[in-house]
């Protein structure tokens, strides 16, 4: 990909991802928040693909957009919020100010430390793509144990989620 095309893709992805993430955390209607979150996940998947990790990008689309965002939408629709979304007031903004200030401070500290470190200015070494064959080979040789543990973890999470959400009929 040429430098200009990569830069245009980067700019568009930045706009989509950060705009959707901002909408996801700030909108008053929680259904809109869930949908914006799905769009933010699509933007992050675009960043993965732009960075040359196509497989992870598609996994992100499959797992986050296809499963996690849909699961969050299900829970939003299953639980009813307490009344209608409240209108924006300056009193609510004032109560949120300390949290917003801390988040802004975190962002500034990270950004300043990124901007002041020389070693992060280097470009990419070369057009290194990830071959799915090499990835699969590594998964079943050097990373076999984490793969198995992930399987056990997912099974445990599945059973735990079902147990939690099951109807309490013994009292």
């Amino acid at each position: 990909m040429s430098t200009t095309a990569a830069f245009i893709a980067y700019s568009v992805l930045t706009l989509v991802t950060l705009g959707a993430a901002l909408a996801a955390v700030s909108l008053r209607n929680i259904v809109h928040c869930g949908l914006s979150l799905a769009l933010a996940f699509v933007g992050v998947a675009g960043f993965y693909i732009l960075l040359g990790a196509e497989f992870v990008g598609f996994i992100q689309l499959l797992v986050y957009v296809g499963a996690v965002a849909v699961l969050i939408m299900f829970v939003i629709l299953l639980t009813r919020p307490d009344g209608d979304p409240q209108p924006f007031t300056f009193d609510r903004l004032r109560r949120a100010l300390p949290g917003l200030g801390i988040a802004l401070a975190v962002f500034l500290v990270i950004t300043i430390s990124i901007r002041t470190s020389e070693s992060l200015r280097a470009g990419a070494p070369d057009d290194a793509g990830v071959s799915i064959e090499a990835l699969g080979h590594k998964l079943v040789t050097s990373h076999l144990l984490p793969l198995q543990i992930t399987g056990v973890l997912l099974t445990a999470a599945l059973i735990g989620a079902v147990l939690f959400a099951m109807k309490e009929d013994n009292n």
Binding site: A21, A24, A103, I110
Partner: peptide, 11 residues
């Protein structure tokens, strides 16, 4: 970008 995403989630 990653720092901005993190801060939005943190907020």
């Amino acid at each position: 970008i990653s720092a901005a995403l993190f801060s939005l989630g943190f907020a």
